[in-house]
Amino acid sequence: MNTIAALKQGNLLVFNELYYSWHQRIYYFILRKTKSSFIAEEVTQLTFIKFWNYRESLSDNLDAHLQLFRIARTTLIDFLRKETVYKEKVIHIIDRYTLPSEELWGKLAEKELQHKLAHALEEMPPMRRKVFEMSRFKGMSHQQIAQELSLSSRTVEAHIFQAIKQIKHYFGLLLPLLAWLFPF
């Protein structure tokens, strides 16, 4: 039985063999493109999840590994698009709520959001918080932060990514409220 046919029938042994044979190659393919081990791990996992979930629609005419790399490429593009949109929204929200508001309700909401952001920042590990503050509040580039703190640019990128992810998690249900209070 060929690999694609076995996958379409839900054969987990064949999937596991593919996973162990190609996981590391997919990971390094993404790592070369992004220079981020975090993104490479996330996209690699998403690739195999999608590969399994959409196994019935795999082409019988292409090798499984070629289809894996196609899925990895499109998953990376989707991931980067979503992260870019998310980062822009968070930065916009942070920028917007720190500006003085003309209305009393706006000022109250602004203070509440500042308090929530301050609390979210307090919960971060010290280095992550410092890197995030240098980037977002002082406007320093990744390279400048890396140089000042004697870190690699990748480490700075990872800290910022994790900080944004932590803020997103902390604000959770508040994001729709923020969007309502401060339309984009």
Rank of each mutant, 00 (worst) to 15 (best):
H92N: 15
L113I: 10
T47S: 09
V85G: 09
L177K: 13
Q114W: 01
V156K: 00
K8E: 04
I39R: 00
R128M: 15
A109G: 08
K82Q: 15
H92D: 13
M127S: 07
G172E: 00
Y86S: 14
Q67E: 09
A179K: 12
F29T: 02
L175I: 15
E123S: 13
L113M: 10
I160L: 07
N53V: 06
R136T: 07
A5W: 07
F182W: 15
S57F: 10
L46A: 13
P126M: 05
R96G: 10
R25V: 09
L12W: 09
W22Y: 14
I30T: 01
R70H: 12
I4C: 06
T44C: 14
R154L: 00
N2V: 06
E157N: 07
I26R: 03
F51S: 00
L66Y: 05
F137D: 05
E42Q: 15
P126D: 09
V90D: 05
H23W: 12
F51V: 03
E17M: 01
D95S: 14
L177F: 12
H119Y: 11
Q24S: 13
Q143Y: 08
S101I: 01
A109M: 12
I4D: 01
L80K: 11
F79P: 11
I94Y: 04
H115I: 02
Q147R: 05
E42V: 13
K107G: 04
H159W: 03
R55F: 12
A109S: 12
K165E: 15
S150M: 03
I49Q: 09
E133L: 15
S150V: 06
E83I: 12
L80C: 11
G10L: 04
T155A: 04
M1V: 12
T75F: 02
A120Q: 06
S59F: 01
S101M: 06
F48T: 02
S135K: 03
Y20N: 15
R81G: 08
L149K: 02
H119W: 06
H119Q: 13
L7A: 03
L76G: 05
L117F: 11
L177E: 14
R128K: 14
L175G: 06
D63G: 07
Y27R: 10
W22P: 00
V14S: 02
I167G: 03
V156L: 00
I160C: 01
I49G: 01
L13A: 08
Q166N: 13
I93T: 13
H92P: 08
L13K: 07
F79V: 05
P176G: 08
N11L: 03
L31A: 05
L121T: 04
L181V: 12
L62Q: 10
A146N: 03
R73Y: 08
L113K: 02
R96N: 15
A6C: 11
